[in-house]
Design a protein around this nucleic acid. Structure first.
Length: 501
RNA sequence: GGGUCGAUAGCUCAGUCGGUAGAGCAGCGGACUUUUAAUCCGUUGGUCGCGAGUUCGAAUCUCGCUCGACCCA
């Protein structure tokens, strides 16, 4: 910055902000208003960890000098002495200031500091008479003047919209929000560790695709100016990851963003984080065992237990996950239906009509069973359940079953009534894949906006030979919702998508 | 897209039957040298989301719009 103009105090509609701007102007007039030479040497939590158990007398004998910095969250002024609570990335620590300690002039200046100001303080550790570890301050400095008042100190930020739009305020004031996002980071770290330990290679594949593929979803479109071509934000990394398996990277994974041009809900954000992994010489049965282990280990590592509570209901991720076909899942909650009935096209169609459920009457039996499953069972699957044997018509990238060509070696995992993962033995028959793509193109031409495009290079890759491979995607945001007991996906995404203000 | 609920001081919230706006926190002034959401006294601060309508009079009733939460599609 080369400007030397001193900003003037701006007129503001809020008297509190005006007052703070005036204070800042006075600080500017007195010298450097935004000093960056304060050396923070200690974190609040580290001090509690190291010295929290020491007695008053032990600390007096040790005379431990500390330099802490952070945002002032609470302030209690009592004439010739004051207390303040400083918050840093690790936690909080109390400051004690007095005329004796910092001098009358500095203490008087401190009395006009505001909640939200960022301070640096040096001093000596001691215990108050209520046995709280505190810093007896010998010097306190304003490092950053805060111009806007914080949300009310006791209730914090309550307005849901403001929590999402101004996440920084949510994080400043709300311990629970901070904990959720710290856990998010730990969960992703634990997943990464798990795959690396199992000899997987982490890769990055394109976010911008010329042919969107790997899932049935509407893509976001954009345009590449220099090449003058339409591009799409990816809806899934699947086809690129399998190209890598063709290339000989036999165990790969990617944790990254997908983009889907769909509505918003408590379970959907237009950009969301997906884990996808592929392993050669494995099948979908191996994947189910593997993902059970993964989820169990992540819970154990991050939460210290596999016993979790979600929205008031208990759940043990340590127990074996259920495995059911769609028909079995429907029967679990509606035992009045017989196998014969659920395998009768007309019967299933009539049930769907009675339920006023969306379905395509042109679908095969499998597609209709899927619609019935979604209507009658999906949201009831609270305990982890793999639903297996998905119909081939809705699984254009999955290997069909050798015993029944109408179904695929595919599963989806449901927990707390929500889809969490999708995996299958990969279709590695290039000619079959080409035919499945062609069927998708026909569906797209017939108006199915979510049908897939044909990716000729992907077919070409398969023609070189994809080993028998199993692959899976896990919705990371939903997994984090599960492990942090969050009701909405917006509560686990730092900056969820919102309408423009 | 449909339904329900919500939007009042910087924040958290009251606001009766339609009668001209309230509290706590924060701020400002004062008291106070071990407080813990400090306390006590005094005090400033409002486009009642936006726009129409009804009415002598609207935060309040009606309609439309914007934004959000939840449910449904």
């Amino acid at each position: 910055m080369t400007t030397e103009t001193i900003p003037t105090v701006a007129a503001d509609d809020n008297q509190i902000i005006t007052e703070r701007r005036n204070k800042l102007a006075a600080i500017r007039a007195a010298g450097v208003a935004f000093p960056n030479d304060f050396e923070r040497k200690n974190l609040a939590q580290t001090l509690h960890d190291q010295y929290g158990e020491k007695t008053h007398d032990e600390l007096e004998a040790l005379q431990i000098k500390v330099a802490v910095a952070g945002r002032m969250m609470l302030k209690r002024v009592m004439g010739k002495a004051s207390f303040a609570t400083l918050q840093d990335m690790s936690g909080r620590v109390q400051l004690f200031l007095s005329n004796d300690g910092v001098g009358e002039a500095e203490h008087t200046a401190f009395k006009h500091y505001d909640l939200g100001d960022i301070l640096g303080a040096v001093g000596v550790l001691f215990k108050t008479k209520t046995n709280e570890l505190s810093v007896r301050v010998s010097q306190v400095r304003m490092l950053t003047k805060s111009l806007r008042p914080l949300p009310e100190k006791f209730h914090g930020l309550a307005d849901q919209e403001q929590k999402y739009r101004q996440r920084y305020l949510d994080l400043i004031t709300n311990q629970d929000a901070r904990e959720v996002f710290k856990k998010r980071t730990k969960i992703i770290q634990a997943i990464r560790d798990f795959f690396i330990r199992h000899d997987y290679m982490e890769v990055e594949t394109p976010m911008m695709h010329s042919i969107p593929g790997g899932a049935s979803a509407k893509p976001f479109e954009t345009h590449h100016n220099a090449l003058d071509m339409k591009m799409y934000l990816r809806i899934a990394p699947e086809l690129y990851l399998k190209r890598l398996v063709v290339g000989g990277f036999e165990k790969v994974f990617e944790i990254n963003r997908n983009f889907r041009n769909e509505g918003l809900s408590t379970r959907h954000n237009p950009e969301f984080t997906m884990l996808e992994f592929y392993e050669a010489y494995r099948d979908y049965r191996y994947l189910m065992d593997f993902s059970e282990t993964l989820i169990r280990e992540v819970a154990q590592k991050v939460l210290g237990t596999t016993l979790i509570s979600y929205q008031g209901k208990e759940l043990d991720l340590g127990k074996p996950f259920h495995r059911l076909t769609m028909v079995q899942a429907v029967q679990k909650y509606h035992p009045q239906f017989s196998d014969a009935q659920l395998n009768d096209r007309d019967f299933v169609i009539n049930q769907l009509k009675d339920l006023k459920a969306k379905h395509r009457p042109t679908d095969g039996l499998g597609g209709l069973q899927l619609s019935l499953f979604e209507e009658l069972a999906e949201t009831k699957l609270f305990e982890p359940t793999f639903i297996i044997d998905y119909p081939v018509e809705v699984s254009p990238l999955a290997r069909s079953s050798d015993s029944n060509p109408q179904i695929t070696e595919r599963f989806e995992l449901f927990v707390v009534g929500r889809e969490l993962a999708n995996g299958f033995s990969e279709l590695n028959d290039a000619e079959d894949q080409a035919a499945r793509f062609d069927a998708q193109v026909l569906a797209k031409d017939a108006g199915d906006e979510e049908a897939m495009f044909k990716d000729n290079d992907y077919v070409r890759a398969l023609e070189y030979g994809l080993p028998p491979t199993a692959g899976q995607g896990i919705g990371i945001d939903r997994l984090i919702m599960l492990l942090t007991d969050s009701a909405s996906i917006r509560d686990v995404i730092l900056f969820p998508h919102m309408r423009a203000e």
